[in-house]
Amino acid sequence: MRSAATARDGHYADLAKVPAVTLGFWIIKILATTLGETAGDTVTMSMNLGYLAGTCVFAALLALALAAQIRASRFHPFLFWTVIVATTTVGTTLADLCDRSLGIGYLGGSALLCALLAATLYAWHRNLGSVSIQRLDTRAAEIFYWLTILFSQTLGTALGDWVADPDAGWGFGYGGGAALFGAGLLVVVALYQWPRVSRTALFWAAFILTRPLGAMVGDYLDKPVAAGGLALSRYAASGALVAGMLLLAILLPQRAERLERVARD
């Protein structure tokens, strides 16, 4: 019998390569998702590269960062958050590409990404028996983990735009959309008080909800006043968010999540 906490090189390990879920984790996560929106818009709109070129640029950066993350033997905070930011910027440009350039609309994009996210979680659980971040002890689990994150980040942009847009969506606006998704997070926090509610399900619910929340905040910062935003410079907003993430990553505790020890043959 071997421990499920076996590292990739065959040595026993107790720690995952992802951060423990703390208040600091969620604060940095929201900043990262907000940065994904402003940085994605900076490249596709302010630099006029367009959604396809922007998606290719960020996808290349994601591939490089993700390869380094998977090859790493332990948790590296700055590497982990670099991959998170890469997934959220790819998510922003890819969702905009699907919704706008490909013409499937916010509803079509949101439905497609919901289906991909659900299918990934189902395949992960069916093949490995758990979608818990405390069971990221194999290469396959890591791949499912990052696929789930990528689809959730992309869904967040499509869903956020659908909720906010007054012409092609629900018309909540950026402030109303942020309040809506913020209320959803409060429901998750309330459910956390019941021990019988799956902590894994609550984690993924919160992880998914923070993406459209960040998208709403990002759009509110850089969209024109006439569209309900503050019309701040995308460059300045993105720079401030990067600085804030770096500062918090240094000041707030960044420890690795502990792996569950489960006996396997």
Rank of each mutant, 00 (worst) to 15 (best):
Leu97Ala: 11
Asp137Ile: 00
Ile104Pro: 07
Gly156Ile: 02
Asp165Trp: 03
Arg74Thr: 15
Cys56Ser: 13
Leu79Gln: 10
Gly36Gln: 01
Leu128Trp: 11
Ala59Arg: 12
Leu61Tyr: 11
Gly105Trp: 11
Gly40Trp: 10
Phe78Thr: 13
Trp146His: 09
Val83Thr: 13
Thr138Ile: 04
Ala164Cys: 13
Ala67Asp: 10
Ala67Phe: 14
Glu142His: 13
Thr89Pro: 07
Thr154Ala: 14
Ile149Arg: 01
Ala115Pro: 02
Leu94Cys: 14
Glu142Met: 13
Asp167Asn: 08
Val43Gly: 10
Ala164Leu: 12
Gly103Asp: 08
Ala68Ser: 14
Leu113Phe: 07
Phe78Gln: 08
Asp167His: 11
Thr42Cys: 01
Gly109Met: 05
Leu159Gln: 07
Leu116Met: 15
Thr92Ala: 09
Thr154His: 01
Met45Glu: 00
Phe75Arg: 07
Gly36Val: 05
Phe78Val: 08
Gly108Thr: 12
Gly109Asp: 03
Gly105Asp: 14
Gln134Glu: 14
Trp170Thr: 03
Gly160Val: 09
Asp165Lys: 04
Val90Thr: 15
Thr87Cys: 15
Asp167Arg: 12
Ala123Pro: 00
Ile84Pro: 05
Thr82Leu: 15
Ser110Ala: 14
Val43Trp: 04
Trp81Leu: 08
Arg126Cys: 00
Leu136Met: 10
Ala140Asp: 08
Val90Lys: 06
Trp170Arg: 03
Leu113Asn: 06
Pro77Lys: 08
Gln153Glu: 06
Ala60Thr: 15
Thr154Arg: 09
Val85Cys: 11
Ser73Met: 11
Gly169Asp: 10
Leu97Lys: 11
Leu94Gln: 14
Ala95Asp: 15
Leu159Ser: 14
Pro77Thr: 08
Phe144Tyr: 15
Ser132His: 08
Thr154Pro: 05
Asp99Arg: 15
Ser130Ala: 15
Leu128Ser: 08
Gly156Tyr: 01
Ala168Glu: 12
Ala72Thr: 02
Thr34Asn: 04
Val57Leu: 15
Ser46Cys: 00
Asp41Leu: 06
Ala53His: 11
Ala65His: 06
Thr148Pro: 02
Leu66Lys: 12
Phe144Asn: 08
Ile149Asn: 04
Tyr145Thr: 02
Met45Tyr: 01
Thr42Ile: 01
Ala86Ile: 00
Gly91Phe: 13
Gly54Ile: 12
His76Phe: 09
Ile133Gly: 09
Thr34Ile: 02
Gly50Tyr: 00
Ala141Asp: 07
